[in-house]
Amino acid sequence: MRLNYFVFVVMISFCGMNAQDKTAALKLVGEGVAFHDKGEYENAIKKYDEALTVDVDNLTALSEKAYSLSSLHQYEEAIALCKIALKKHPKEKGLQFIYVTYGNALDHLKKTDQAFAMYDKGIKKFPDYYQLPFNKGIAYSGLRKYDEAITCFQQAIAINPYHLGSLNGIARLEMIQGNKIPSILGFCSYFIQDPQSSRAAENLKNLIDVLDGNVKKTGDKAISISLDSKMFDKAVKKGKPEANDFSTTELTLTLAVALDYDEKYQNDTDVVKFIRKFERMCASLNESKIDNHGFYWETWVPYFLELHKNNFSETLGYLVFATTETEDVTNWFNTHEVQINQFYDWSKNYEWPKK
Rank of each mutant, 00 (worst) to 15 (best):
F187P: 08
K217Q: 15
I170S: 03
A200Q: 09
P195D: 03
S197G: 07
G169E: 11
C188T: 08
G165D: 14
N214L: 11
Q196N: 13
Q196H: 14
S183V: 01
I208R: 10
I192K: 00
D209E: 10
D209L: 13
N203E: 06
G213D: 08
V210E: 01
D212T: 12
S197P: 11
K217N: 14
K180A: 08
G213N: 09
V210I: 07
V210M: 02
N168W: 14
N179L: 10
Q177N: 09
G186H: 12
L204A: 10
G178K: 10
M175S: 04
Q196D: 09
S166P: 05
S183A: 14
G178F: 02
L211T: 05
S197F: 14
L173E: 04
K216C: 11
Q193K: 01
V210T: 03
T218H: 08
F187Q: 10
Q193D: 00
P182Q: 07
K180E: 07
N168Y: 13
N203W: 01
H163R: 11
A200T: 03
Y190A: 08
I181D: 04
G169N: 06
I192S: 00
P195L: 03
N206C: 10
H163A: 05
A201H: 01
Q177I: 06
K180I: 06
A200R: 01
M175Y: 08
Y162C: 06
D194W: 01
I170P: 02
S166R: 05
I176E: 07
D194H: 00
E174V: 02
S198H: 15
K205C: 08
G213P: 09
P195S: 15
Y190K: 02
G186S: 08
I170M: 11
N206D: 14
S166Y: 13
S189V: 01
A171F: 10
T218G: 05
